[in-house]
């Protein structure tokens, strides 16, 4: 439901820009007039471009490695808190993952 409102808002933003370009006589100087309309219009373009970003760019292998590193790090922290350092075998295991 919120997504529906957000899409409506996005469309409303485009409508607002069109309205702003028509009512831009409210701004005194021509440069300011163009800037006020062009600036949000250019920024608005980045939203669909973000959606078009290919999923392939997300490096799955590296992502896995980072998740494992985070897990290893939390195990390591827990071990230190409990006064037990991880074994060399475990540490070697992490290095092999990386």
């Amino acid at each position: 439901m919120i997504s529906f409102f957000a899409i409506l808002l996005f469309l409303g933003g485009i409508w607002g820009l069109i309205w702003l370009s028509r009512e831009s006589y409210l701004f005194r100087r021509r440069l300011i007039r163009y800037l006020v309309v062009a600036y949000p219009a250019l920024l608005l373009l980045s939203v669909p471009l973000l959606y078009l970003a290919p999923e392939a760019k997300i490096d799955i292998d590296r992502q896995e490695a980072v998740i494992q590193m985070q897990e290893s790090s939390s195990i390591f922290k827990q071990a230190i808190q409990q006064g037990q350092l991880p074994s060399d075998k475990e540490i070697l295991g992490w290095r092999q993952v990386l």
Binding site: A6, I7, P40, L43, S46, L50, A53
Partner: peptide
């Protein structure tokens, strides 16, 4: 919108960057 543009620039600048959610959800916007 500038925050989203920043995401886009960071995304294309760092080719090996790992980003899980590149595109913002409409709710977030």
């Amino acid at each position: 919108l500038l925050g989203f543009f920043l995401r886009l620039v960071v995304y294309w600048r760092n080719m090996n960057v790992i980003l899980n959610d590149v595109a913002p959800s409409p709710d977030e916007l």
